[in-house]
């Protein structure tokens, strides 16, 4: 690997996780404030994350199993914030009852 794809792949992977984090935070803030506009921004962050999956899959020199793995984890990121939020609400509401 020469330095250009090394840097590009590394940056794409870092941004991939960062976009996932931004999606998680914004999703949680939107759920807490019941803000649909923030929710849309959170989905935009997730879209950026999926775009980065495409960048890694099409433009990086990684072997295909790694690309497949990045794609699968990109999909997993999509479920974590809503699932976590639902779990927390269930826990808190069952306590309130």
């Amino acid at each position: 690997m020469t330095y250009a794809p090394l840097l590009a792949t590394s940056a794409a992977l870092g941004l991939f996780v960062l976009a996932g984090g931004a999606y998680g935070v914004l999703y949680a803030v939107s759920a807490a404030r019941l803000s649909s506009s923030l929710e849309r921004v959170s989905y935009a962050c997730y879209a950026v994350q999926l775009l980065l999956v495409l960048v890694v899959c099409l433009g990086s020199p990684l072997d295909w199993p790694w690309k497949l793995f990045i794609a699968a984890s990109g999909i997993a990121y999509g479920f974590i914030p809503p699932a976590t939020w639902r779990l927390l609400e269930t826990l808190h509401h069952s306590r309130a009852r």
Binding site: V17, G20, G21, G24, V25, Y27, A28, V29, A31, A32, R33, W66, F69, I70, S73, A76, Y77, I80, P81, T84, W85, L88, H92
Partner: peptide
Amino acid sequence: GGFFSALEPLPLLGMVVHAVYDAGT
């Protein structure tokens, strides 16, 4: 190593959502 290390951020994302939940409530 590559596979399990790449999974390590996932629980951390859950923690961040939890922190925002607690701060929000």
